[in-house]
């Protein structure tokens, strides 16, 4: 790896597991849960966050020395809002039905705590290249959880993955349905997203004892 030094690789790989933005830093949960009933929506949401966080981190890092610290929140909000408008318009142009499905949650990337959190914690104190890597790393960490949750909810809830019927056809009784398998419609309802994330946290912390909290 000539391009990335060891430190730089750590910036990307750390947020994937041991410093995951959702399960450890508790950031950006708002939008993570509501749109994960389908894998496709989770992937699109992850890509949008990847773009906004990667570019936003670079922009903030470039202008970090000229932002007066008193109004930095408003400056940050303006940068994010501009980037999110780009994402929203692109989605409306190329994937209209999907953007209808995600409805207000694309807009809510603006107040996604991951973005503001990384701006405050990292981009304001580091150079553009490092900030870019940090942004990509954290967005990937966010994406991993979103995709895991979306995978299980779509598979167990509607028996499909990305719309393909991987478990057979429930109406014609093929595949698993032939031996009496039924879809668990409950997985599609919003409360199950919380419980799935709870279970992910449980699994992760059982594997890595250092992460266990006192209360």
């Amino acid at each position: 790896m000539g391009l990335l030094s060891k430190k730089d690789t750590k910036l990307i790989t750390d947020p994937l597991a041991d410093n995951n933005p959702i399960t450890i830093q508790v950031l950006g949960i708002c939008s993570a849960l509501a749109i994960t009933a389908q894998l496709k929506a989770s992937i699109v949401m992850s890509l949008s966050v990847l773009f906004v966080l990667g570019v936003g981190n670079v922009v903030i890092s470039l202008i970090r020395n000229i932002i007066p610290s008193k109004i930095r929140i408003i400056v940050q909000l303006t940068v994010v809002a501009a980037l999110v408008i780009i994402v929203d318009q692109v989605l409306k142009a190329f994937a209209y039905s999907l953007s209808k499905e995600l409805s207000v949650f694309i807009g809510l990337i603006i107040t996604n705590c991951i973005i503001m959190g990384r701006f405050e914690a990292f981009a304001l104190g580091n150079g553009p290249w490092k900030s870019f890597l940090d942004g990509i790393g954290n967005a990937l960490g966010y994406a991993v959880i979103l995709i895991i949750v979306g995978f299980f909810r779509e598979l167990l809830g509607s028996g499909t993955l990305l719309g393909f019927k991987v478990l057979g056809d429930p109406i014609e009784k093929t595949g698993l349905y032939a031996i009496g398998y039924e879809n668990n419609g409950f997985m599609l309802l919003s409360p199950m997203a919380l419980i799935v994330v709870g279970i992910i946290i449980w699994v992760q912390r059982s594997k890595n004892k250092d992460l266990i909290e006192d209360h």
Partner: peptide
């Protein structure tokens, strides 16, 4: 509470159960 669930984990699960109640 089981140690790995303490704090964040159990809060998520409780919120999920409350959400089922609110449904």
């Amino acid at each position: 509470v089981p140690a790995p669930l303490r704090g964040l984990g159990i809060t998520f699960i409780i919120t999920g159960l409350m959400a089922i109640g609110f449904m």
